[in-house]
Design a protein around this nucleic acid. Sequence first.
DNA 1: AAAAACTGTAATGTTTATTATTACACTATG
DNA 2: CATAGTGTAATAATAAACATTACAGTTTTT
Lengths: 142, 142
Amino acid sequence: MNSDFTLAVHSLTYLALQPDRMSTSDCISESAGVHPVRIRKVLSLLKKHGFIKSKEGTGGGFIFTLELSEVNLWDIYMLTSEGALQPRCPDSNEQCIVGANMKRVLFTIFLGAEEHLGEYLKNYTIKEVVDLVNQEQNSGCD
Amino acid sequence: MNSDFTLAVHSLTYLALQPDRMSTSDCISESAGVHPVRIRKVLSLLKKHGFIKSKEGTGGGFIFTLELSEVNLWDIYMLTSEGALQPRCPDSNEQCIVGANMKRVLFTIFLGAEEHLGEYLKNYTIKEVVDLVNQEQNSGCD
DNA sequence: AAAAACTGTAATGTTTATTATTACACTATG
DNA sequence: CATAGTGTAATAATAAACATTACAGTTTTT
């Protein structure tokens, strides 16, 4: 799966830990290890769907607008990666019964697979992700 | 997901419909719409795991060795695409609590997701795929 | 025994997708 | 009005997927 998903989760988790002030795309991009423009692109999508708000100008940035438990990984998957599970199907030979129908058969099967994935991912909200990040941090060897 | 999965399923379905004679990589590649070398590469993997056998030389090719219901889509996913569900994680900043732990947290979550996908994909054997292909063919408008 | 029809696989080239970078318009703050 | 931000389009660079070429090895046919 494409890394927009990871960047969205990463950004939201970052914002979750800064609930009282705005975070800039520069800060987030430094944490995520990618270019600030990509962060702004991903966050612009999250903003459009009401998960966060942004403010331009000095002192501006991004901040969470919802409760952490109101956003789950399925929401984010749908925004950033819907259809990513579908295997690629080269254009095949329509004269052959297999070639003519395989694409649709696999499409249908993986539509079901994506629904199942949804049920699983709905169990993880940003709150859970924050908790898991903290757990990892504490269990880390040093 | 990468198209090796599709090509493997496509090839096996093709072989399922030719149970009595060997099929060449040329025939299969024409049905699947890709280069014969790719088919041979994918089939070489399926052979290594005992799903099919091959024979070189004139009159050679590939043929199923198992019952159609003994091979399911999870088997094929594992061979061709294990880990494909994992979202890409750019190397992030280890100094930041989010950057330092996000990768592992997501990895763990998607390991679980892949297990769930497995339970779903095990429900589809090549036999079911053949049936679905036939259904599609018959329900086609013309 | 030589030609023809195959598989097996490595090496290389091409195309496509992903990601980074640049550029700049726009907005808010001090 | 300078500074620090977002928003977004256009372009460049990199990486992944895929096609192609090349050729060694194996059977069958003649």
